[in-house]
Design a protein around this nucleic acid. Sequence first.
RNA 1: GGAGGAAUGGCAGAGUGGUUGAAUGCACCGGUCUUGAAAACCGACGUACCGCAAGGUACCGGGGGUUCGAAUCCCUCUUCCUCCGCCA
Length: 427
Amino acid sequence: MLQVQMLREDKDRILTGLEKRNLPDAAAKIDEVVALDDRRKELQTQNDNLLAERNQLSREIGDLFKSGQKEAAGSLRDRVNVIKDESAAIETALTEVLTELDEQLLQLPNVPHALVPAGSSAEDNEVYQDHPGELPTPGTGAKPHWELAEEYGIFSLELGVRTTGSGFPVFTGQGARLQRALVNFFLDRNTAAGYTEYAPPLLVNEDTARATGQLPDKEGQMYYVPEDDLYLIPTAEVPLTNLYRGELLEADQLPVRLTGYTPCFRREAGSYGSHVRGLNRVHQFDKVEIVQITTPEESYTKLDEMVAHVGGLLDELNLPYRILRLCGGDMGFTSAMTFDFEVWSAAQERWLEVSSVSNFETFQSNRLKLRYRTERGTQLAHTLNGSALALPRIIAALLENNQAEDGILLPEVLHSYIGKARLERIK
RNA sequence: GGAGGAAUGGCAGAGUGGUUGAAUGCACCGGUCUUGAAAACCGACGUACCGCAAGGUACCGGGGGUUCGAAUCCCUCUUCCUCCGCCA
């Protein structure tokens, strides 16, 4: 959530930024928020003054009672009762203004960083780091991962339909082992890089979902359990970042680095078709996430650091990838800058997104009330997160890119995790 | 699910209607003393909002109520602890 103070002091920069998102009527929306906040201040000041008078009179009434001056106390009490009525009326108005202000503020997306390109769709994304050299060509007859999955017994969508419904893959045998191997590999690398491992809850309450920005923006994308008013997490970002909701950190506690493995649940309402075959888009998938909490001065350095870390994981897996800097129109609601990692899927001959690394600046921390102490007082921290990494498309790419006569050749870093160097056909 | 108990500042822990934003101890920070450290002593020590400032307002788990006045009384919700039941 944007801070009103920022809207007041930095309107031009914010407008320039929001234009990159093609947000209609941005200027009018900002003006309205500021006007509401003006009204808020006015009402609050009025009310504070009334309450100050009430407190003063109450003290006098107390003194009068002690000295036995009952009549004098009575007349003061009448005056206090008048004040109470006035104050109640102002508070009603204040609550209305606050509600409206909150609603307006909730609708404003984060302001893209100056380096974020303008644009309306994925086509306007900037190729930040292209894959060097030729893309691998596995040769004619290369099979897409959903065919390989059958041949090698990696996962079954049919079994998922039996237990649950479409889009819930069941990993089997060496496929399940591969998945576990990748999770362990990622967690080991992340913890070695200084991230502390957490295993958070997979269901979260409404406050948590709102603080990281999933609500109200992505309401329909999350599975919801009405009985208990809980949401299944769409990413570990939600519980991990909320671990620090409401905290006031000392400067020497920063940066905070967290990592966690969780299944992720996404309704993906309305996306069907050939481009979502196999593991390309599923309702439940495994992901290892990294999160950082840091200062405004350091957050973009940390973003670079996280991008480098994720790139290192893909290097180790020997997967061809490129890095995109998302344009304003393609970026998430809460982000100020996002880098997407895409791996090349040789058989499908297309890029698959496997990681998204973002700096949210103070957008989340404002909702989280996540601050740290400086010499000049408290300040909102910056939050960042990224996938390191999302599993299904990594598996898809590993299968497709590494298929050979004698099996699927696994990258060396995985050998010890999976106990063998290649996956074998089961039929 | 049932029956009890509890929730106060970074921590521990007073406070059951009136200058209590809150005693006291510990921790932390500044200082005195010391060659240095410890000890001792002195001082400072919550957050948010409004205000140029002085200052004002709010906050003692959340919400609501009673009262001139609530950390303190009432209602309600949440969480934690103990016991019983159920259970991976």
